[in-house]
Amino acid sequence: MTFNRVLTLIGLAILIALPTFIPPYFLHLVIQILLWAFIYTAWALMGRFGFVSFGHGAFMGIGAYVPALLWNYYDLTPWIGIPLSLGISVLLAIIIGYPCFRLKVVGHYFALVTLALSQVVLLSLVAARDVTGGSLGFTQKTVGHSWYALQFPDKGYFYGIAVVLWLIGLLAWQRIDHGISREALEAISEDEDAAAAVGINVLREKLRVTVISAALTALGGAIYGQYIMYLNPETVSGIAVSLQIVFASIAGGVYSLLGPTVGSLLTLSLTEGLRVWFGANFIGAANTIYGILLVLCIIFMPQGIVGTIEGIKARRRRMAKPSAAPSNVRT
């Protein structure tokens, strides 16, 4: 058994035992960190290959709102509502993704098209205020503890769900990282035409990773909605959420498995910590510092925190063993 595997097992054991010994407030924080980490990981599936989407707020919004609306108006269980919302997100991802990839809308243009997508979903949610409650938000009908309604007043259940989701996210990341797709997608992000010339089906590879990313984001949004039990267009969709997803993932590092998780851990603890520290009198103080850190991060550590640490480690290792060929160094 390798050292890393032992570390992983210890980490998992701590994760499982966690709800028994930490107070509810911290449990709430940990659940949020895990759920956002899942969403950031889902975004990083695309983001690491240079397909920077500012539209993930749209998928998250759909994921959160569709099951909630179906539950309130038609008493439809989230067990059907959530797959439905995933389906809608995937459909939307294909409607936007297919023409984008087909017509080679890349870089700035892709970012701005997806930005428009997140505005479309946000404004639709606000505009349909008769159904969604608009900017005032939307609250699901509560029924107490129920597996059918996927509502648990006891945070322990959601903690379990969040851990499982997070592991699913990491698994998806690893599957793509170890699969043949990664080589193909890396080639595409370097040079699309050259990738196509060596026989990579550019359109299919890009569309597949986009669909997976969108579906996982919607799933994260749905569970987040079930957990928070209050939806607001501004907090589950739109540009602000899209930017939050992009920045936290990048700050943590999109090139490493745990990068987005570290991004989620750092940004949420920073926001919460600063909020407790400054109190309610200084709304905006936390985000001000956050904004400065983001800019610094992108200027000085474009690989993200985890990526930078790994880079330093790799350099040390190479210095210790000068004969070893530089491996695993990605730019």
């Binding site: 240079g50 920077v52 870089g107 985000n287 400065i292 200027i299």
Partner: peptide
């Protein structure tokens, strides 16, 4: 894209600093 993100960080900063 890094340039886009750097100015995006500025957006965060300006909005929260104004708040």
């Amino acid at each position: 894209l890094n340039q886009l993100l750097a100015t995006g960080g500025l957006l965060f900063f300006l909005q929260s600093f104004a708040t």
